[in-house]
Computed example of a mutant assay.
Amino acid sequence: MPWKDIQVLDQRMSFIVAYRRGEDSLAAVCRRFGVSRKTGRKWVERYCESGLEGLLDRSRAPHRHPNAVSAEIVRLVIMAKHEHPAWGPRKLIPWLRRRHPEIELPAPSTAGEILWRHDLVQPRKRVRRTDPWTRPFEDCTAPNETWCIDFKGWFRTLDGVRCDPLTITDAYSRMLLCCRGLESQNGRLVRRAMERVFREYGLPATIRSDNGTPFASTAPGGLSRLSVYWIKLGIMPERIRPGHPEENGRHERMHRTLKAETIVRPMPNMPAQQKVFDSFRLEFNEERPHEALGQNPPASLYRPSERSYPSRIREIEYASEMTVRRVRTSGEIKWKGGLIYLSEALVGEPVGLVPESERHLAIYFGPLKLCLMDQSTHQLVRIAPEWKQ
């Protein structure tokens, strides 16, 4: 007769009792209970060895797992996670591999299962994302071709002081060149921070920013005093389109990591917060693997620029065919007896004017074509800024 799951132990015990009476052979008892002689002999032997406990079902899992992860590797993965709580398995395994090259480490998926079993994974809400914007990243083929600059959203330290984190990265290597907590987004403070970065790493060819202050303005060419400073150093300002942070996606991705590891829990004051920023920058550059870099840290690819910061910033010079005018303190230039307002960002700087057509003059600041001027009305005509070497 069939054995029901809820009566398995009772049926096996009844089988043993019937066999031990000795009235029937093992084969006859097996036929009566509807089991094979092999199964009947197995239950008799287990009962003789372990008594009633021998009749319980045993685990069918294999005694040995050839691909099982050792306790030592589990310990290393868990220790690495505690040391870097914000990292996932795809960061932890390359980081461990550099420190323990003699150990054969598991795949990131296996490390993820280890973290999951030990409640070290915090599920994130799935976010629908737009397709990545690739332009203009195709030109970032070497360090210092393009730097990215932005402010991470401001917050207050525990003593109530406002902190505006200024960040600068190298677009090619993802090297975090600056992470400085400022008291505001004032252009003078940003320039002072950038001078330190320029002196340490040299000058890039291009700096990419958004359209906000102090990086840009509504003046011709989008110039601000800070971008004027860049142009005098031979750096081309490059701005993303308004409302399109994905055009600076590499920098924005770094901001997400920065927020998770340094800003979610603010420090008591600005000096303490800056120490956290400095520690994050060191780890981000020297230790944190980056998937786009073949799981190497940014510092392994970055090299300082060959263009060093000058001891004296020279005034911009123009070709002989250009007419030069100096911008007055009011932001105006004088032209044919009249004053034409250009921009206060250019106060004290020379600009060059050259005929563009029979009607228009082009106004340049260094190699940057700012706008056109109608020669008959002396009105400025806004155009898309154009950089001409």
Rank of each mutant, 00 (worst) to 15 (best):
R196K: 15
I231S: 11
A18C: 14
A205M: 12
E23I: 11
Y172F: 14
F151R: 02
A61I: 01
R288P: 04
I383A: 06
R58L: 12
T169P: 14
S36L: 09
L293D: 01
G51W: 02
E113V: 11
M175A: 07
P297D: 02
G366H: 03
N269P: 04
W154A: 14
R196S: 15
I73G: 06
H251T: 08
H290W: 04
N285C: 06
L105G: 00
M373F: 03
S70H: 09
K81L: 05
A260G: 08
K81A: 11
S36E: 06
L56D: 07
I263H: 01
K38N: 10
R288Q: 14
G181I: 04
Y318F: 08
G51K: 01
E53D: 14
A86W: 08
S14P: 01
K91D: 07
P123N: 01
G181R: 00
V44Q: 12
R225D: 12
L176Y: 00
M322G: 01
S173V: 10
S308D: 06
P266I: 07
R97N: 07
S209F: 05
E200V: 05
W116F: 08
V264F: 12
K4Q: 15
I168S: 01
I231G: 10
I333Q: 03
R239M: 13
K388L: 15
M322K: 03
L158W: 10
R21T: 09
I313F: 05
P385A: 06
T218D: 15
A362Y: 02
A292W: 00
E145F: 06
Q185L: 06
S300I: 04
V264N: 14
M270Y: 08
W133D: 09
C179N: 12
A86E: 15
C163L: 13
A260N: 14
E358F: 04
D278W: 11
R31T: 07
E246L: 15
G187I: 03
E286I: 05
K388Y: 11
R382D: 11
P106K: 08
E49A: 15
C48Q: 15
D170I: 10
R326F: 13
R174S: 12
D131W: 12
I207C: 02
S308E: 11
D170E: 12
M1I: 09
G181D: 03
I363E: 04
L55P: 08
A205T: 11
T169I: 15
N296M: 12
V127S: 02
S279R: 13
K4L: 14
R253V: 10
T169V: 15
I207E: 00
E113P: 02
I316A: 05
S311L: 08
I207S: 01
L92R: 10
E145D: 03
E145Y: 05
F215A: 07
R208Q: 09
V347W: 02
R20M: 10
G22P: 12
E200L: 13
M175W: 02
R162C: 11
R64M: 05
L55Y: 09
G153P: 03
R328W: 07
Y229C: 09
D164N: 13
W335E: 04
M322P: 00
I78R: 13
E183V: 12
P204K: 00
E358S: 10
I93N: 04
K42F: 06
R58P: 00
M322F: 07
H378R: 14
Q11C: 14
E138P: 00
P108E: 04
R31H: 10
N144V: 02
C163M: 13
V324I: 11
H65I: 10
A362I: 05
T213D: 12
